[in-house]
Amino acid sequence: MSKENIIQITDLTKVYGDGVKIKALDNVNLTIGRGEFMAIVGPSGSGKSTLLNMIGILDTPTSGTITLDRVDITKASEKERSKMRNQKLGFIFQYHHLLPDFNAVENVMMPLLINGIKPSNARAKAHTMLKEVGLGERVNHRPKQLSGGENQRVAIARALANSPDIVIGDELTGNLDSGTSEKIYELLRKLNREHDQTFILVTHDERMAEKTERIIRLVDGKITEDKST
Protein backbone atom coordinates (compact mmCIF):
# COMPACT_ATOMS: atom_id res chain seq x y z
CA MET A 1 0.00 0.00 0.00
CA SER A 2 1.39 3.35 -0.97
CA LYS A 3 -0.64 5.33 1.55
CA GLU A 4 1.05 7.29 4.35
CA ASN A 5 0.98 5.42 7.67
CA ILE A 6 -1.32 6.91 10.28
CA ILE A 7 -1.20 4.11 12.86
CA GLN A 8 1.87 2.08 13.77
CA ILE A 9 1.41 -0.67 16.36
CA THR A 10 4.51 -2.44 17.59
CA ASP A 11 4.69 -5.53 19.86
CA LEU A 12 1.43 -4.59 21.55
CA THR A 13 0.47 -6.79 24.50
CA LYS A 14 -2.37 -6.38 26.96
CA VAL A 15 -2.71 -8.59 29.99
CA TYR A 16 -5.80 -8.41 32.22
CA GLY A 17 -6.27 -9.70 35.75
CA ASP A 18 -4.22 -9.66 38.91
CA GLY A 19 -4.27 -13.35 39.80
CA VAL A 20 -5.22 -15.34 36.72
CA LYS A 21 -3.66 -13.47 33.81
CA ILE A 22 -5.54 -13.25 30.56
CA LYS A 23 -3.63 -12.17 27.51
CA ALA A 24 -6.14 -10.14 25.53
CA LEU A 25 -3.53 -9.04 23.01
CA ASP A 26 -0.37 -10.96 22.32
CA ASN A 27 2.48 -9.18 20.59
CA VAL A 28 0.39 -7.51 17.91
CA ASN A 29 2.16 -5.67 15.08
CA LEU A 30 0.05 -3.66 12.67
CA THR A 31 0.39 -0.72 10.32
CA ILE A 32 -2.64 1.18 9.05
CA GLY A 33 -2.50 3.78 6.28
CA ARG A 34 -4.31 7.10 6.04
CA GLY A 35 -7.74 6.79 4.40
CA GLU A 36 -7.99 3.01 4.80
CA PHE A 37 -11.43 1.47 5.21
CA MET A 38 -10.87 -1.70 7.14
CA ALA A 39 -12.48 -4.24 9.43
CA ILE A 40 -11.21 -6.15 12.42
CA VAL A 41 -13.00 -9.48 12.75
CA GLY A 42 -12.79 -12.41 15.10
CA PRO A 43 -14.82 -14.44 17.59
CA SER A 44 -15.84 -12.82 20.85
CA GLY A 45 -13.00 -12.70 23.34
CA SER A 46 -10.45 -12.57 20.54
CA GLY A 47 -9.23 -9.15 21.64
CA LYS A 48 -10.67 -7.02 18.84
CA SER A 49 -12.44 -4.57 21.15
CA THR A 50 -9.33 -4.36 23.30
CA LEU A 51 -7.27 -3.51 20.24
CA LEU A 52 -9.82 -0.90 19.22
CA ASN A 53 -9.80 0.67 22.71
CA MET A 54 -5.98 0.85 22.52
CA ILE A 55 -6.10 2.62 19.18
CA GLY A 56 -8.85 4.86 20.59
CA ILE A 57 -6.61 5.81 23.54
CA LEU A 58 -9.27 4.64 25.94
CA ASP A 59 -7.07 1.88 27.35
CA THR A 60 -3.34 1.52 27.93
CA PRO A 61 -1.23 -1.46 26.83
CA THR A 62 0.79 -3.65 29.19
CA SER A 63 3.71 -3.40 26.78
CA GLY A 64 4.47 -2.25 23.26
CA THR A 65 3.84 1.06 21.54
CA ILE A 66 1.12 2.67 19.47
CA THR A 67 1.96 5.64 17.28
CA LEU A 68 -0.89 7.81 16.00
CA ASP A 69 0.16 10.30 13.35
CA ARG A 70 3.79 10.05 14.56
CA VAL A 71 2.86 10.62 18.26
CA ASP A 72 3.59 7.76 20.68
CA ILE A 73 0.35 7.70 22.64
CA THR A 74 1.65 5.24 25.21
CA LYS A 75 3.96 7.98 26.46
CA ALA A 76 1.47 10.86 26.21
CA SER A 77 0.12 12.68 29.26
CA GLU A 78 -3.54 12.46 30.28
CA LYS A 79 -4.10 15.94 28.87
CA GLU A 80 -2.50 15.09 25.51
CA ARG A 81 -4.46 11.85 25.33
CA SER A 82 -7.75 13.73 25.92
CA LYS A 83 -6.81 16.25 23.26
CA MET A 84 -5.97 13.52 20.75
CA ARG A 85 -9.20 11.67 21.48
CA ASN A 86 -11.04 14.89 20.75
CA GLN A 87 -9.21 16.00 17.63
CA LYS A 88 -7.74 12.90 15.99
CA LEU A 89 -10.34 10.26 16.82
CA GLY A 90 -14.04 9.71 16.35
CA PHE A 91 -15.91 6.93 18.12
CA ILE A 92 -19.06 5.11 17.06
CA PHE A 93 -20.31 2.43 19.44
CA GLN A 94 -22.78 -0.42 19.14
CA TYR A 95 -25.30 1.46 21.22
CA HIS A 96 -25.11 5.00 19.95
CA HIS A 97 -24.17 6.39 23.42
CA LEU A 98 -25.59 9.78 22.63
CA LEU A 99 -26.07 12.13 25.57
CA PRO A 100 -29.77 11.65 26.37
CA ASP A 101 -30.32 15.16 27.72
CA PHE A 102 -29.17 16.81 24.51
CA ASN A 103 -30.87 16.91 21.12
CA ALA A 104 -29.26 15.68 17.90
CA VAL A 105 -27.57 18.92 16.96
CA GLU A 106 -26.28 19.48 20.50
CA ASN A 107 -24.86 15.96 20.57
CA VAL A 108 -22.99 16.61 17.35
CA MET A 109 -21.82 19.99 18.65
CA MET A 110 -20.30 18.47 21.75
CA PRO A 111 -16.90 17.35 20.34
CA LEU A 112 -16.62 20.75 18.65
CA LEU A 113 -17.34 22.61 21.91
CA ILE A 114 -14.83 20.41 23.73
CA ASN A 115 -12.36 21.41 21.01
CA GLY A 116 -12.96 25.06 21.95
CA ILE A 117 -14.97 26.02 18.88
CA LYS A 118 -17.42 28.90 19.31
CA PRO A 119 -20.99 27.64 19.95
CA SER A 120 -22.42 29.45 16.89
CA ASN A 121 -19.79 27.92 14.59
CA ALA A 122 -20.18 24.53 16.25
CA ARG A 123 -23.93 24.64 15.70
CA ALA A 124 -23.51 25.50 12.01
CA LYS A 125 -21.00 22.68 11.55
CA ALA A 126 -23.26 20.22 13.38
CA HIS A 127 -26.16 21.12 11.09
CA THR A 128 -23.97 20.45 8.05
CA MET A 129 -22.86 17.10 9.47
CA LEU A 130 -26.41 16.02 10.23
CA LYS A 131 -27.46 16.96 6.71
CA GLU A 132 -24.60 14.87 5.38
CA VAL A 133 -25.82 11.77 7.25
CA GLY A 134 -29.37 12.45 6.06
CA LEU A 135 -30.84 13.84 9.26
CA GLY A 136 -31.15 17.51 8.30
CA GLU A 137 -34.82 17.52 9.30
CA ARG A 138 -34.51 15.97 12.74
CA VAL A 139 -31.86 18.13 14.36
CA ASN A 140 -33.95 19.15 17.37
CA HIS A 141 -35.02 15.65 18.36
CA ARG A 142 -33.60 13.99 21.41
CA PRO A 143 -32.20 10.43 21.20
CA LYS A 144 -35.38 9.10 22.80
CA GLN A 145 -37.40 10.51 19.91
CA LEU A 146 -35.23 8.96 17.19
CA SER A 147 -35.05 5.39 15.86
CA GLY A 148 -32.01 3.16 16.34
CA GLY A 149 -30.78 3.82 12.81
CA GLU A 150 -31.30 7.56 13.19
CA ASN A 151 -29.44 7.64 16.47
CA GLN A 152 -26.57 5.74 14.90
CA ARG A 153 -26.47 8.36 12.14
CA VAL A 154 -26.30 11.11 14.79
CA ALA A 155 -23.48 9.18 16.43
CA ILE A 156 -21.67 9.02 13.07
CA ALA A 157 -22.14 12.77 12.57
CA ARG A 158 -20.77 13.31 16.06
CA ALA A 159 -17.76 11.05 15.44
CA LEU A 160 -16.94 12.99 12.27
CA ALA A 161 -17.64 16.48 13.66
CA ASN A 162 -14.02 17.41 14.40
CA SER A 163 -12.84 15.89 11.07
CA PRO A 164 -10.72 13.29 12.86
CA ASP A 165 -7.98 11.34 11.07
CA ILE A 166 -9.32 8.07 12.43
CA VAL A 167 -12.91 6.90 12.93
CA ILE A 168 -13.45 3.87 15.11
CA GLY A 169 -16.61 1.78 15.03
CA ASP A 170 -17.24 -0.98 17.56
CA GLU A 171 -20.00 -3.33 16.34
CA LEU A 172 -21.74 -0.19 15.19
CA THR A 173 -24.47 -2.02 13.29
CA GLY A 174 -24.76 -4.87 15.78
CA ASN A 175 -27.93 -3.38 17.16
CA LEU A 176 -29.64 -2.62 13.85
CA ASP A 177 -31.65 -4.66 11.36
CA SER A 178 -29.80 -5.75 8.23
CA GLY A 179 -31.44 -3.16 5.97
CA THR A 180 -30.45 -0.31 8.23
CA SER A 181 -26.99 -1.81 8.72
CA GLU A 182 -26.53 -1.87 4.99
CA LYS A 183 -27.44 1.80 4.73
CA ILE A 184 -25.14 2.79 7.57
CA TYR A 185 -22.30 0.90 5.89
CA GLU A 186 -22.92 2.63 2.60
CA LEU A 187 -22.93 5.96 4.41
CA LEU A 188 -19.59 5.22 6.09
CA ARG A 189 -18.08 4.13 2.77
CA LYS A 190 -19.27 7.35 1.13
CA LEU A 191 -17.87 9.50 3.95
CA ASN A 192 -14.59 7.59 3.81
CA ARG A 193 -14.22 8.33 0.10
CA GLU A 194 -15.18 11.98 0.47
CA HIS A 195 -13.08 12.86 3.53
CA ASP A 196 -10.06 10.53 3.23
CA GLN A 197 -10.40 9.51 6.87
CA THR A 198 -9.27 6.14 8.20
CA PHE A 199 -12.17 3.91 9.24
CA ILE A 200 -11.51 0.95 11.52
CA LEU A 201 -14.61 -1.13 12.13
CA VAL A 202 -14.81 -4.00 14.55
CA THR A 203 -17.47 -6.52 13.59
CA HIS A 204 -18.31 -10.18 13.82
CA ASP A 205 -20.47 -9.89 10.72
CA GLU A 206 -18.29 -11.40 7.96
CA ARG A 207 -20.66 -10.17 5.27
CA MET A 208 -20.16 -6.58 6.38
CA ALA A 209 -16.43 -7.06 6.74
CA GLU A 210 -16.22 -8.25 3.14
CA LYS A 211 -17.36 -4.80 2.05
CA THR A 212 -14.21 -3.15 3.45
CA GLU A 213 -10.84 -2.90 1.75
CA ARG A 214 -8.89 -4.85 4.33
CA ILE A 215 -9.73 -7.47 6.92
CA ILE A 216 -7.66 -8.19 10.01
CA ARG A 217 -8.60 -11.41 11.75
CA LEU A 218 -7.80 -11.78 15.44
CA VAL A 219 -7.83 -15.08 17.31
CA ASP A 220 -6.76 -15.31 20.96
CA GLY A 221 -5.11 -11.91 20.85
CA LYS A 222 -3.03 -12.67 17.77
CA ILE A 223 -3.43 -11.54 14.16
CA THR A 224 -4.04 -14.68 12.15
CA GLU A 225 -5.00 -13.07 8.87
CA ASP A 226 -4.44 -9.72 7.18
CA LYS A 227 -5.98 -9.65 3.73
CA SER A 228 -6.96 -7.02 1.22
CA THR A 229 -10.31 -7.55 -0.43
Binding site: G56, L58, E78, K79, S82, K83, M84, R85, N86, Q87, L89, F91, F93, H97, L98, L99, P100, M110, P111, I114, N115, R158
Partner: peptide, 16 residues
Protein backbone atom coordinates in the same frame (compact mmCIF):
# COMPACT_ATOMS: atom_id res chain seq x y z
CA UNK B 1 -21.62 6.62 34.19
CA UNK B 2 -22.05 5.65 30.54
CA UNK B 3 -22.35 9.28 29.55
CA UNK B 4 -19.24 10.23 31.49
CA UNK B 5 -17.38 7.45 29.65
CA UNK B 6 -18.64 8.81 26.35
CA UNK B 7 -17.59 12.34 27.29
CA UNK B 8 -14.14 10.98 28.08
CA UNK B 9 -14.07 9.23 24.70
CA UNK B 10 -14.96 12.54 23.06
CA UNK B 11 -11.89 14.01 24.66
CA UNK B 12 -13.20 15.66 27.82
CA UNK B 13 -10.22 15.71 30.22
CA UNK B 14 -10.83 14.56 33.79
CA UNK B 15 -10.34 18.13 35.00
CA UNK B 16 -13.40 19.14 33.01
Amino acid sequence: TKEIGMLMAMGVPSRS
